[in-house]
Every structure is written in structure tokens, then in C-alpha cells.
Design a binder for these strands. Sequence first.
DNA 1: CTCCGATATGTTTAGTCAAACATATCGAGA
DNA 2: TCTCGATATGTTTGACTAAACATATCGGAG
Lengths: 122, 122
Amino acid sequence: MSGAPEDGLAHLRVTLSETAYVGPGRADLLESIARTGSIAAAGKAMGMSYKRAWTLVQALNEGFGRPLVDASRGGAGQGGAQLTMAGAAVLASYREMQGRTRLAIAPEVERLRTLFELQPEK
Amino acid sequence: MSGAPEDGLAHLRVTLSETAYVGPGRADLLESIARTGSIAAAGKAMGMSYKRAWTLVQALNEGFGRPLVDASRGGAGQGGAQLTMAGAAVLASYREMQGRTRLAIAPEVERLRTLFELQPEK
DNA sequence: CTCCGATATGTTTAGTCAAACATATCGAGA
DNA sequence: TCTCGATATGTTTGACTAAACATATCGGAG
């Protein structure tokens, strides 16, 4: 599979500008980084290579015009990464919008599923 | 670019089942078919090859377990395609959900844009 | 001043997906 | 029955993307 590995209902991507946007994948990665305290651990937890996770972080930081993730190498704890205040704000905001969207479309989704006699997921 | 050529704000994909889902591209194609009365014309109007449009229609019809688009070849008018009642229902429902989503997230999007000093689009 | 774990990148390979190109088919109407 | 426009598919080519593999770097701790 490859398309919607998150929610099984609404796949939401919010575009703030030409380069700044957040979707399910980016949000999950931010959340995973916040939880694990490391880009590598976050990536592994999501089943992606370190490089892929790191590249996403770059795109996030550059796209938003300021770092959403603050990483450091060496030092105490041998490096790691955390969300900046901006990063935490983006994540929280995205989750908020995701929740509102689910609520907003839920009745319509139910209606369609009934109409087509479809089951939510596998 | 390649990701969100529709709205510039919310990119919504709704998943009804493992195989049945609608996103901006599929919705636009359905709408274009309804307007032009042909898969080929609809595809051309959207800047995609006939094959791509046709393949999408197949995926739609099979994914939803019943035809959303009804096509015929030869005959009066030399063939063409229209939305079935199911197809029209899916399209209308998607537009409805899209509108509700925009309304639901608009304030939050505005908040983020202000916070990051970002401009909507190019 | 060496070690270690995590970040930071570059290069190469492979796999996926869309575009391009080629036909075959259908069927009312001329 | 021949034509024409649109549907219906298959095959090949090319572009883009992700995976795999390889290093280099940082810097407190020991």
C-alpha cells in the first residue's frame, strides 16, 4: 500500500504558501520526532530510512522559512532533535484542523458508505 | 510543481473503503466529464492524456463497485460518456465535504499564515 | 584525545508511474 | 458498407522518486 496510511477516512493536506504545507506524513513525522527526541528514531519508528526522514525535515524547515525541528549532533546524549516552538505550533494546528475536518465530513462519509454499501477498511 | 493544483488551501481526499476514495483530481475529472460529455474531451481540458483519464475512470468504476461513469462508443454522436447517478452523487458529495472542510479550517489556516508571515500563493 | 551515537550529505541502484506511441473496436449515419 | 469520432487497451520510453550503500562530522563523556 502507499496512499493513505493514517486515518482511513480523511486525508488532509493544508497549503500555507507555495512551499509551506503539511499533510498526514509530515505531521506524523513531527509527532514522532517530538516523542522520540531524534530524527533517526522517529524515522525508524515510521518505517522510513534516516535519510528520508532527514530530507523531510529539511523540506519542512526550508519551506516554512524557519526551523520547525532543531537538531544537534554530538554532545550530551550524543545528539538528537526536538520540535521548535514553531514546529509544535504547526503540529498542534494540523491536528486541530484534522479533527475539525473529520467532524465536518463524518455525516457525509457515512451517507456515502451506506449508499454504496462499503465497509470502512480491511 | 505537482501536488495541489486545485485549491491552494485544503487538499482533501476521502476514503470510503480500501478501494473507493475521491480526491481533488478524481472529483475534477468527474466534473469535467459531466461538463464535456466525453472522457477524451475531459482529459484534454485538464491537460492529461486520454489514457490517463480513461485509467482513472476505470479505477473509479471498479473501486466503487459500480460505474460512476457510463461510456459508449460509436453510435449517434460517435460515442461519449456521462456520469451515472452514482457518479453525480459522489461528485456532489465530495464538493459538499470540500466546502465544509474549507470553512472548518479557514480560521486556523489564517492564524498559521499570520504566525509565519506567509502569502497564500505565488 | 579517543569513542560513540546521532546528525549531515553524496552517490548509486532500483522501482514506480506517467507520457508517448500504436492499434483495435464500436455503431449510428451518410 | 464505409466513415468518423470516441472508447478501449497494449507496449515502450522516460522522468521522477525512493531505497540502498557509503562516509564525513560533531562534541560531550570517559
